[in-house]
Amino acid sequence: MFSDNHRYIKIFLLILILVVLCLYSFREGKRIYIDLGICLANADRFDGREIVLEDYVYVSSVSKGRFAIEQEGSRIPVMGASDELAPGDEIALRAIFHREGYLTLQELHIKKLRTIKIIISLAAAVFVAVLFFKRYRFTLKDLQFVERF
């Protein structure tokens, strides 16, 4: 399996399988994943149903006993309070959707430190890249990485 026999065919087949799996995921994921835009576009279907909004949900305004959220251009008010919320916070929430165009809050989580997480992860990725390229170099002739020493 690891030999050089038919190496380029093996590489081609593996890339093909990966592309097919990625395309399958792209198609199915869109069908399974529920976001605020889908709920608002199909309000009758989601009426009274519990939904979870986890990604790219931002608080757009906060008032007494309610707040409004925005997810990729779709906005909706949420009934339920949290003292810790402020406009601009990224959150995840579990709520009941109502076709009248509002949510009733069930569970809320404020996502903190996301930007810090991205920055430190980027630093770690650069560190690993430096570590890797200090040890290996790429040769175009054989299309493979070889050790520098």
Binding site: K10, L14, I15, L18, L21, C22, L23, S25, F26, G29
Partner: peptide
């Protein structure tokens, strides 16, 4: 997001690592 999602799942990671190993 969903197009690259499989690259964070066990079976597909095995295939990805196998693919990368062919560049050594």
């Amino acid at each position: 997001e969903f197009a690259v999602y499989p690259l964070h799942t066990p079976l597909v990671i095995v295939l990805l690592c196998l693919l990368l190993s062919f560049f050594f």
